[in-house]
């Protein structure tokens, strides 16, 4: 079952195609990465999902229903460029945004008190937003995003400008909400964050969907059969000769007791390992080098161009 499903969504601005036949699905209860370089069409897609703009073509389903005007109440959206009313008090500000999302006055107040307690900021109610530091404002923004207990949370570059402590705080909250069943879409161009958190991704470039799938599967799909061996002792002298003689095996590098090899399949790597051990080399570590999402991303985007 999917919380969100896009089918052939198209959005055109004047002559420019912002979203071109994009389809993907977000699993219920999953953490999903919406990736792409700047200007790829991520924000356009999010605006369509949050019903800020309408799609020209295609269908969108939220929780099995065709997207309609009641759905924004189930979505929490934190835009990349955060915005709060600078002169407004924190409490009143969140009250206002929560009521716009359809919460009652009482319900909103309860939720705010719950979150203020969670973040240990009970005394912020009467502070003006402009008196807060940027990190503090982000917390307020985050609360405003999740205050109405959305089923789907869309976070556009949620960690930009955050210090490590606040990044972790928000990350933990995202994980906790996810464990309570909230589905999450992460929009970012920073891959290392996605790798850590997301299970599935879709990669958008020039408005088109160019790659999608599970993070672990994608890594295997794009791996180059590189292995990394940390060792002690002297390498057997015939190793270089093996490299020359054998098409299945290649020494990529050998520096300060770390040997990197490229093989055609896993049996070859086992043979190499065996050979080293038989020749009295101590093996400290042996692992396969998988590509980072960053590398896959750059590779795919360059292949597109």
């Amino acid at each position: 079952m999917s919380i969100l499903k896009l089918e052939n969504v198209v959005k055109t601005y004047q002559k420019h195609i912002a979203v071109n036949e994009v389809s993907f699905e977000v699993k219920k209860g999953g953490i999903f990465g919406l990736l792409g370089p700047n200007g790829a069409g991520k924000t356009s897609l999010i605006r369509i999902i949050t019903t800020i703009t309408g799609a020209d073509e295609g269908t969108i389903f939220l929780d099995g229903e065709k997207l309609n005007s009641s759905h924004p109440g189930k979505i929490g959206y934190m835009p990349e460029e955060r915005g709060l009313y600078k002169k407004m008090k924190v409490g009143e500000q969140i009250m206002y945004l929560a009521q716009l999302k359809g919460l009652s006055k009482k319900g909103a107040k309860e939720q705010i008190q719950y979150w203020f307690k969670r973040f240990g900021i009970e005394d912020w109610w009467d502070k003006k937003v402009e008196e807060l530091s940027k990190g503090m404002q982000q917390k307020v923004q985050f609360i405003a995003t999740v205050i109405h207990q959305p089923k789907l949370l869309i976070l556009d570059e949620p960690f930009s400008g955050l210090d490590p402590i606040n990044t972790n705080l928000i990350k933990d909250e995202i994980r906790r909400l996810n464990s309570e069943g909230v589905s999450i879409i992460f929009s970012t161009h920073r891959m290392e964050q996605v790798e850590e958190i997301c299970e599935d991704i879709v990669l958008i470039n020039n408005g088109k969907n160019i790659l999608e799938g599970k993070v672990s599967e994608l890594k295997h799909r794009f791996k180059e059969n590189l292995f990394r061996i940390e060792y002690e002792g002297n390498l057997p002298s015939d190793l270089n000769a093996m490299d020359e003689a054998n098409d299945n095996f290649e020494i990529v590098s050998n520096e300060s007791n770390v040997l990197t090899i490229k093989v055609t399949n896993e049996t070859v790597s086992n043979q190499v390992l065996n050979h080293l051990i038989q020749n009295g080399v101590f093996i400290n570590n042996f692992n396969e080098i998988l590509p980072s999402l960053n590398e896959i991303f750059i590779k795919r985007v360059n292949a597109e161009a």
Partner: peptide, 13 residues
């Protein structure tokens, strides 16, 4: 509202 982008948050509701 446009410059500080709060409009994006509000327009989604």
């Amino acid at each position: 509202e446009k410059i500080n982008r709060i409009v994006e948050v509000i327009i989604s509701s």
